[in-house]
Amino acid sequence: MADDYYQLLGVPRSADAKEIQRAYRKLARTYHPDVNKQPGAEDRFKQISEAYHVLSDPESRAQYDRFGPDFRHYAGAEREYASQGAGGARGGGRTRARPGASGFSWSSAQAGAGPGGASVDWDDLFGDVFGSMRGMDSEAELELSVDEAFRGGPRTIILSGPDGDRQTFEIQIPPGTLDGQRIRVSGGGRAGRQDGGAGDLVITVRVRSDKRLRLDGKNIEMDLPISPWEAALGANVSTRAPGGPITVRVPAGSSSGRRLRLKGQGMPQPGGKPGDLFARVKIMVPPRLNDRERELFEQLKRESSFDPRSSS
C-alpha cells in the first residue's frame, strides 16, 4: 500500500496504542460498509483497517517503522537469513514470512483474520462504536407465470441462508403482481448487531411470459386462434383468459395480427385501475382436409377475387 499507515489513521508516529485505537474507531464509524454506502467507502475502510492491524501490533509496527511499506518483504528476508545462519542454509529448510494483513477485507476480518493470523473479536471492537444496528436486507427473485401473478395467493419459498442452512418463508403474492414488483418480508434478512433487529428479505418478482400469454406492464396480450371462416364472417369466440372463461367478439374481415381490446380484463390492481386484455387474432387452417372441405375451398378459390398480396 502506497499510503503511509500513520497518515491514514491521522496520528503522529509517536502515537501510543490508545491513540491509534481511538483514531481507528472514529474512522471506522465513518467508513464501515454497514453504515456508509458511498462509492469508495469500503476500499477506504480496508485501508484504515490494514493500517490499524499493523500499527496496533507491537512487532508488526516495529517492522513497519524500520522497513516502511515493504516491511513484510524485508522482515521475511531477514527472518529467512537468520534461520539459515551466516554459513548458509541448514538442512535445506526455508522459513516463510508470517502472513501479514495484505489483502485484508472487512468480511475476512469478521471471520477472525487479523495480522499475523491473530484472531480479532469484532463484537468487542465495534460494540461501543456502532451499538445496536439493524441487520442488512437480503434479496431474492421469484419467477411466476402470468396466470400465477394474475391470481396471486400464498406461496412457499425455500432459500439458502448465509451459513448454508435452508430457510422457509411463507409469503402472500398480491393479485395482479407485475414484473419487477418487490415484496418485503419483515425480519427475513440478516441478523442485526447486539439488540438491533434483523433486516428484511426483499423478493423481486419476475413474471414469465409463455407462448400463450405475455405481460406488457399491467396489460396482458394473448393469442386468439380462430378459423378462416370465423375471421371472414365474424364470430363470438370462447376462450380461456387468466381471469377465467371469456367470449371475444371477432369482427368480420379480421386478419391475423389484429388486436382486440377487452377493457379492464388485464392485471388487477387493488386500489387502482386494472390493465386491459388484448386478444391477438391468429388464423388457423385445418392441417388436413376431407373431401368435402377440399371441394368447398376449391370452389371458394374459383369464385373469390380476393388477392391478399395486392391488399397488403
Results as ranks from 00 to 15, higher is better:
residue 103 G to T: 02
residue 103 G to I: 01
residue 104 F to H: 10
residue 104 F to M: 14
residue 104 F to I: 12
residue 105 S to V: 02
residue 105 S to N: 08
residue 106 W to I: 06
residue 106 W to H: 06
residue 107 S to T: 12
residue 107 S to Y: 13
residue 108 S to Y: 10
residue 108 S to R: 14
residue 108 S to G: 11
residue 108 S to C: 09
residue 109 A to G: 15
residue 109 A to R: 11
residue 109 A to W: 03
residue 109 A to K: 05
residue 110 Q to G: 14
residue 110 Q to N: 13
residue 110 Q to P: 00
residue 111 A to W: 06
residue 111 A to L: 12
residue 112 G to D: 07
residue 112 G to S: 08
residue 112 G to T: 08
residue 113 A to E: 11
residue 113 A to R: 14
residue 113 A to C: 09
residue 113 A to N: 12
residue 114 G to C: 06
residue 114 G to H: 03
residue 115 P to R: 14
residue 115 P to E: 14
residue 115 P to Q: 13
residue 116 G to I: 00
residue 116 G to P: 02
residue 116 G to L: 11
residue 117 G to M: 11
residue 117 G to R: 14
residue 118 A to F: 06
residue 118 A to G: 10
residue 119 S to W: 13
residue 119 S to C: 11
residue 120 V to T: 06
residue 120 V to I: 15
residue 120 V to R: 09
residue 120 V to M: 07
residue 121 D to K: 09
residue 122 W to T: 11
residue 122 W to A: 01
residue 122 W to R: 07
residue 123 D to L: 09
residue 123 D to G: 13
residue 124 D to R: 15
residue 124 D to F: 06
residue 124 D to K: 15
residue 125 L to A: 09
residue 125 L to C: 05
residue 125 L to I: 14
residue 126 F to Y: 15
residue 126 F to T: 01
residue 126 F to E: 04
residue 128 D to C: 01
residue 128 D to N: 10
residue 129 V to K: 04
residue 129 V to H: 04
residue 130 F to M: 01
residue 130 F to H: 00
residue 131 G to E: 03
residue 131 G to D: 03
residue 131 G to R: 05
residue 132 S to Y: 03
residue 133 M to E: 11
residue 134 R to V: 08
residue 134 R to E: 04
residue 135 G to N: 04
residue 135 G to W: 05
residue 135 G to L: 05
residue 135 G to Q: 06
